[in-house]
Amino acid sequence: MVEKFHRELDQLRIEVIKMGELAEDMLQRSVEALKKQDNAMAEWVLSKKCKIADMDQDIETKTLQMLTLYQPMAIDLREIGCIFKMITYLARIGRYAKDIAKISIEISDRPHFKKLISIPHMSEIVCGMIDDALISFKEKDISRFKDFSDRDNDVDELRYSIFRECLTYMIEDPKVITQGTHYIMIARYLERCADHACKIAEKIYYMVKGEHIDIDPSTQKCNVN
């Protein structure tokens, strides 16, 4: 029974990583679609909406089944708990990607009123955080979280700078208000995705070390050694 449990856990881990890779891919492509005004790419992101929701539900069901059938302990229990929380954060990242893709299609009928630099930069940082979190989960290695707090801080600052910049453009030319508001929303979505990546990192830290940490820069610095 124990071997069966560990086989199932190995399989579940693979599925979580697949789900994480899909969420990251959706986010990265949604911003790419926005930048290049590529509706086909945005449609691809929208087409994955149900897929990520199904993965979320499927993994959740398997997690609950494993808790009931095997009543795991220690690192196994922490890993199951981590997976249970992780999939919710990953599903939310997928949903934000879907929202960005929708906006991308909505505003694709007119060119960007300025070259998009900060939003793709934000996306790059956030996708990097998700990627690192997934590797850490796979390898049970927490060393990648050392600068998560700083990276989250950078994302927050970028969001604020996008907000200020868009505000300036909108004051100057009311015709760009629709686009500007959408950019501000997208920046906000990306900032939330970074928060979710931090939450995932916190859960993985707990899974590996059995201790809770807080990566949110507004409360305290990440105390990863």
């Binding site: 029974m1 124990v2 449990f5 560990h6 795991p72 302990m73 220690a74 690192i75 196994d76 229990l77 922490r78 059995g210 201790e211």
Partner: peptide, 16 residues
């Protein structure tokens, strides 16, 4: 049961 300090304990309670 949540976070044993000793490796032997962890191995035993996780069925390894």
């Amino acid at each position: 049961f949540e976070n044993p300090k000793e490796e032997l304990t962890e191995k035993y309670i996780t069925g390894r």
